[in-house]
Amino acid sequence: MFIMAVTLAYVSRSSFKYRIGLISDLLLSKYFVIWNNANSFGASTILREGNGILFMETTDRMNPPSLVLCAIESAARVYPDRPVVFFMKGLENITSEEDEKRAKQQFPTLSSYSNVYLFPLRMDQLFNNTPLKPWFDKVNPKKEVYWKHVTSDACRFALMWKYGGIYIDTDVISLRPIPQDHFLAAQDATVISSGVFGLSSHYQLAWQFMENFVKNYRGKIWGHQGPGVVTRAVKKLWGMPVFNSTDDVMCGNISCLHPQRFYPINYLSWRRYFEVWENLPTFKDSYALHLWNFMNNKGKSMVPGSHTLVEHLYQKQCPTAYEYILRNKSTHL
């Protein structure tokens, strides 16, 4: 009996030590996960507060035209206390702060802005655990007419779902801060834009955008996967907003901003940005200006000394880009 008692005591003590050791290992493992997350560097770290300004490039080009750099610089100046992140498909992996700084040095007009960050755009990872992943795995890019555009449409919805913040197209020059964090923007009386919108991360509306994108996918129709998605979702949920003045309206519990906020010059008049105005507009009702880059298929660009409206905008909203072009006589930075 004595030997049995001693044996049981030893086994119990050993079992207790094993359980304590197991718990310690689990706690230690959890600690290292927390430590690694806290000390890792990436978009999730920079955008963890959900207040980022998001831009992206869905082609492999690493020498974007000046309008792209002007759009990002103007946002960095308008939102100095918020991270401005440019996701680039052609960018190599970034795993450290030093990697990110080296990447930004490739863009001299952005390198002086401490709130601008560059990260790679990896669509297969971005679309994981979203309705977009089955579509992305199945679609054949070679058969797509507007592949870079539909992937851009898909990415903006996924980025907003994952990170939240404000998404802005790279042909949009910021003028002043958008006062709302949750908003959609009307392009005109019949279209809700996908070029600028703001939501918090994992906001259900972003998930509905992705579902609508896949369910109604028609990649051969221009705009069907971008503004078409947002417009269809808004119509289904609340009906099209009606603007009786320049005031914004509510779509459910989210602001729907008046077309004047980003589209005071409509797409049919896009050339007006590249003309000389006798009296420069104040755009007092606008937060930013969409320059309709898709319409600009002739490649019109800002020319220093032209006295056009777009030159005035560059001088005021992205002076670093403007000075760089002036010195180097190049519209590619």
Rank of each mutant, 00 (worst) to 15 (best):
residue 14 S to Q: 06
residue 123 M to P: 01
residue 129 N to M: 13
residue 106 Q to L: 15
residue 230 V to Q: 07
residue 37 N to D: 06
residue 16 F to C: 11
residue 329 K to N: 12
residue 192 I to S: 07
residue 50 G to V: 01
residue 200 S to K: 02
residue 310 V to L: 13
residue 32 F to T: 08
residue 174 S to P: 01
residue 245 S to Q: 04
residue 211 E to C: 09
residue 248 D to I: 00
residue 70 C to A: 08
residue 228 G to D: 09
residue 23 I to P: 02
residue 167 Y to E: 00
residue 271 R to Y: 06
residue 201 S to Q: 11
residue 252 G to A: 12
residue 172 V to D: 03
residue 91 L to A: 07
residue 153 D to Y: 06
residue 14 S to T: 14
residue 251 C to T: 06
residue 58 T to I: 02
residue 260 Q to E: 10
residue 5 A to F: 05
residue 36 N to W: 05
residue 20 I to V: 12
residue 5 A to C: 13
residue 10 Y to M: 08
residue 24 S to P: 01
residue 320 T to R: 12
residue 265 I to L: 08
residue 179 P to Q: 02
residue 276 V to T: 12
residue 247 D to S: 08
residue 236 K to T: 11
residue 320 T to W: 01
residue 127 F to Q: 02
residue 100 E to C: 10
residue 304 P to M: 02
residue 318 C to E: 01
residue 160 M to S: 09
residue 242 V to C: 12
residue 156 R to C: 01
residue 57 E to G: 11
residue 265 I to W: 09
residue 282 T to C: 08
residue 206 A to G: 10
residue 183 F to P: 10
residue 113 Y to G: 06
residue 80 P to H: 15
residue 55 F to A: 00
residue 44 S to W: 01
residue 190 T to Q: 10
residue 32 F to H: 08
residue 125 Q to A: 03
residue 34 I to L: 13
residue 136 F to M: 14
residue 130 T to Y: 13
residue 33 V to C: 01
residue 137 D to A: 05
residue 213 F to Y: 14
residue 144 E to I: 10
residue 45 T to H: 15
residue 247 D to W: 11
residue 80 P to I: 03
residue 190 T to N: 09
residue 301 S to E: 15
residue 162 K to N: 04
residue 110 L to W: 08
residue 17 K to I: 14
residue 259 P to I: 07
residue 270 W to G: 09
residue 118 L to G: 01
residue 229 V to G: 03
residue 131 P to F: 09
residue 180 Q to N: 08
residue 146 Y to E: 04
residue 50 G to D: 09
residue 57 E to P: 00
residue 34 I to H: 07
residue 210 M to A: 10
residue 272 R to L: 10
residue 150 V to H: 06
residue 71 A to G: 08
residue 199 L to W: 03
residue 35 W to G: 00
residue 64 P to G: 09
residue 200 S to W: 00
residue 270 W to T: 06
residue 54 L to I: 14
residue 271 R to H: 12
residue 64 P to K: 07
residue 230 V to P: 00
residue 208 Q to F: 11
residue 235 K to W: 04
residue 196 V to C: 06
residue 85 V to M: 04
residue 189 A to P: 00
residue 11 V to H: 04
residue 194 S to A: 11
residue 23 I to Y: 12
residue 180 Q to P: 00
residue 316 K to N: 03
residue 324 Y to E: 03
residue 273 Y to E: 03
residue 305 G to R: 05
residue 205 L to F: 14
residue 245 S to G: 08
residue 12 S to M: 08
residue 256 C to P: 02
residue 45 T to L: 06
residue 254 I to W: 04
residue 178 I to S: 03
residue 217 Y to T: 02
residue 151 T to H: 09
residue 197 F to I: 15
residue 85 V to G: 00
residue 116 V to A: 02
residue 258 H to V: 13
residue 37 N to R: 04
residue 311 E to T: 06
residue 13 R to C: 15
residue 255 S to H: 03
residue 215 K to I: 15
residue 77 R to C: 14
residue 310 V to S: 06
residue 82 R to E: 11
residue 140 N to I: 07
residue 18 Y to C: 15
